[in-house]
């Protein structure tokens, strides 16, 4: 899984590409820990290039969501591929996480 960080104003953007499974989910945990500096509260996780997510990935995203909530921040996921959207839908994630179609829409919402 490829993970890249960027920043747009105060919003931290993490982009994930490839597979988020039992092996790579810890890499995402680590990447988030690096991005979540004390002054960061709002996050966008871009999933346009994420082709696969398993239960391990779901757990990681839930943990991240919890950490964002703990710092009174906001988290938006964007660009879900069909495969990831299906897993989110089956797991009920679409009901508890904010999801936008595009990064631009997410940034506009967080502005």
């Amino acid at each position: 899984m490829d993970i890249t960080h960027s920043q747009h104003g105060s919003v931290r953007i993490i982009e994930l590409k490839g597979r988020m499974d039992a092996v790579t989910a810890p890499l995402f945990d680590k990447a988030f820990a690096e991005a979540a500096t004390p002054d960061a509260s709002d996050f966008v996780i871009q999933l346009n290039g994420l082709e696969y997510i398993s239960s391990a990935g779901l757990r990681s995203i839930l943990m991240v969501a919890k950490q964002v909530k703990a710092r009174s921040g906001r988290l938006i996921l964007t660009g879900l591929t069909d495969e990831v959207r299906e897993v989110f839908h089956l797991s009920g994630f679409h009901t508890i996480l904010r999801i936008c179609d595009t990064k631009e829409a997410a940034l506009a919402e967080l502005a």
């Binding site: 810890p26 757990r59 839930l62 964002v68 909530k69 904010r98």
Partner: peptide
């Protein structure tokens, strides 16, 4: 990976 038992990890409030 261990997650402390009973820990709340998500709620609908997360969606903001």
């Amino acid at each position: 990976r261990a997650v402390p038992t009973g820990q709340i990890v998500a709620s609908s409030a997360l969606a903001g």
